[in-house]
Simulated assay, not measured.
Amino acid sequence: MSAVSGLISKRLSWPTITMFALGFWLSSSLILDLVIMPSLSAAGMMSQSGFAAAGYSIFSIFNRVELLCAGLILTSLLALRGTSNLYRHVRRWSIFFSLLLLAIALIYTYIMTPQMSGLAVQLNSWEPVNSMPPGMVQMHEGYWLLETIKLALGTLMLGWCYRDQRTLA
């Protein structure tokens, strides 16, 4: 019983919460982008008519998880305000980058995912799926640009939090 109460009384620090949220978000993004979607493409699922609905379901759920992670990161960095070495050194940049990460998650959730799914929907089930719709290529370019920015900023912030955690220990 004392082991359980010892775990409950031990508090998590805000830098730890930030690092966990960033690590989870970045690793799950990489798994989705570099494992799941290429696997579905290699299996030929992207050429089937129901892929737009399946893709929307996958990305809709993942986008909500991204919003939760971005909100948790912003909240934890605001909670660190004035109490952490990280906040003293890079206070404006960390808050700005976390707001930018939240904006990217909002763009994915409410702009890109619905538009890409709408472009991919096959309205005539008798026509075979030949290729990607013309607007989809531009949407993919925008997605990869935002994904690169997200991974770069997230990695930078993860490094800041890790360095801050090490200096506090």
Score class of each variant (00 low, 15 high):
34 L>S: 10
12 L>K: 10
95 I>N: 00
83 T>K: 08
80 L>S: 00
15 P>D: 04
31 I>K: 02
130 N>R: 15
65 V>I: 09
38 P>N: 05
98 S>A: 09
28 S>N: 07
125 S>F: 06
71 G>R: 01
124 N>Y: 09
106 L>Q: 03
24 F>G: 11
61 I>N: 05
5 S>W: 08
136 M>Q: 03
27 S>K: 14
128 P>F: 09
148 T>Y: 10
87 Y>V: 00
14 W>E: 01
101 L>V: 02
122 Q>E: 06
82 G>V: 00
55 G>H: 04
100 L>W: 13
36 I>V: 13
65 V>Y: 05
78 L>I: 02
10 K>N: 09
93 W>G: 14
159 G>C: 08
4 V>T: 06
90 V>W: 02
51 F>E: 03
20 F>V: 12
114 P>C: 10
67 L>S: 08
134 P>W: 03
36 I>R: 04
68 L>M: 07
82 G>F: 02
127 E>Q: 11
138 Q>W: 14
121 V>P: 05
7 L>D: 10
150 K>N: 09
162 Y>P: 05
49 S>G: 04
32 L>Y: 11
52 A>N: 06
43 A>I: 09
18 T>M: 05
36 I>N: 02
102 L>G: 02
169 A>H: 12
164 D>I: 01
113 T>N: 15
33 D>K: 03
149 I>P: 02
44 G>Y: 07
165 Q>G: 06
127 E>S: 13
82 G>R: 00
51 F>N: 01
101 L>E: 01
116 M>D: 08
146 L>M: 10
106 L>V: 12
67 L>V: 12
91 R>V: 00
41 S>N: 14
146 L>P: 00
2 S>T: 10
89 H>D: 15
57 S>M: 05
57 S>H: 13
86 L>C: 12
132 M>S: 11
61 I>Y: 06
130 N>A: 15
102 L>D: 00
44 G>D: 08
85 N>S: 15
45 M>V: 14
158 L>D: 02
53 A>I: 09
10 K>I: 11
41 S>W: 13
147 E>Q: 13
39 S>D: 05
16 T>E: 07
80 L>W: 00
97 F>H: 04
83 T>H: 11
8 I>P: 10
101 L>Q: 02
